[in-house]
């Protein structure tokens, strides 16, 4: 059992949990992910690590209550336990001093971007951060990101905060004005696809963090197949970070939707789905 030691609501339906898992915390690095299971009938879901506190032996995960399992997870409170929490999985981000870099985060993707940005800043990079959300109330980790960035920008789709429009608008501006060595982009699949299309003409290497469907997370099932260049890679062991310019995005986006119908069925039949009184 793994205890939830702290919870925080970051935005409507976006929650932060700090979970006690000292062995995982001792080894985890920026860019890696964990897999958890809420209860004995639960599915294994991957979540990218949003922060690591080695002294306290905890890891921070952030999730949006979008499906059956994330909603069920969201029903839990401080002091509750989940049955399984395994990690750290995947390869850590390649942190070095590149020079001037840009970190772009969208929606809940800002959370996993944060430890990477912090590590890049600590490695001596000049960090330009661009984060975005649909609207101001959905924007998360603003203060955290600001603290580890030399330049910080915000975009909201509805213009309720910062630039009205998309993170790509701001990114394009940066690329037009300054020489950038590398870009990290984490967010919804469609956002990462558009960012890669934006950065390609500038020939700036763009690293994305994939979040495909997984089961075991150790290279055993191949559910997380991603087509990178001419090769099929397993995001769980070869990734989750890949060169975004080489990814077959249409395929990746389609594969994320394999169980969409089942997800609806689970929610309709689910013990939670609001039925537990949590919503």
């Amino acid at each position: 059992m793994y205890q939830i030691v702290a919870t925080k609501i970051l935005a409507p339906s976006i929650k932060l949990f700090e979970i006690k898992a000292p062995k995982v915390a001792a080894k985890a690095k920026a860019g890696q992910f964990i897999i958890l299971r809420v209860d004995d009938e639960g599915e294994r879901i991957p979540l990218t690590i949003a922060d690591i506190n080695r002294n306290a032996g905890t890891l921070t995960i952030i999730f949006q209550e979008v499906g059956y399992t994330t909603k069920k997870l969201g029903c839990l409170n401080e002091g509750d336990n989940i049955v399984d929490f395994v990690g750290p999985l995947g390869q850590p981000s390649e942190i070095e001093n590149y020079g001037r870099i840009v970190c772009v985060g969208g929606g809940v993707g800002v959370a996993p971007l944060y430890p990477i940005t912090r590590a890049l800043k600590e490695a001596g990079n000049e960090v330009i951060s661009i984060i975005g959300a649909r609207s101001k109330d959905l924007l998360i980790f603003e203060e955290e990101m600001k603290a580890v960035s030399d330049t910080f920008m915000v975009a909201t789709d509805d213009g309720s905060y910062g630039h009205k429009g998309f993170v790509t608008d701001l990114l394009k501006q940066v690329l037009d004005e300054q020489e950038v060595k590398q870009i990290w982009a984490i967010g919804p699949g469609i956002m990462m696809k558009v960012i890669c299309a934006t950065t390609k003409p500038y020939e700036v290497p763009t690293i994305v963090s994939m979040n495909p469907i997984m089961v075991d997370g150790t290279g055993m099932c191949g559910a997380c197949r991603v087509s990178v260049g001419d090769e099929t890679k397993f995001a769980c062991v070869d990734g989750p970070e890949f060169d975004g310019h080489l990814i077959d995005w249409d395929l990746a986006l389609r594969r994320m939707n394999i169980f969409k119908d089942e997800e609806k069925r689970a929610e309709a039949a689910g013990s939670c789905g609001g039925g537990c009184g949590c919503q």
Binding site: E43, K72, C221, D261, R265, A266
Partner: peptide
């Protein structure tokens, strides 16, 4: 892969979906 197909069904009990939360199509 056979591994995924069987793991979903056996380990994760997808044959009991949705009582067990792991789906299989």
């Amino acid at each position: 892969s056979a591994n995924e197909f069987l793991t979903r069904t056996n380990l994760m009990k997808a044959y009991k979906f949705p009582e067990a939360a792991t789906p299989i199509k």
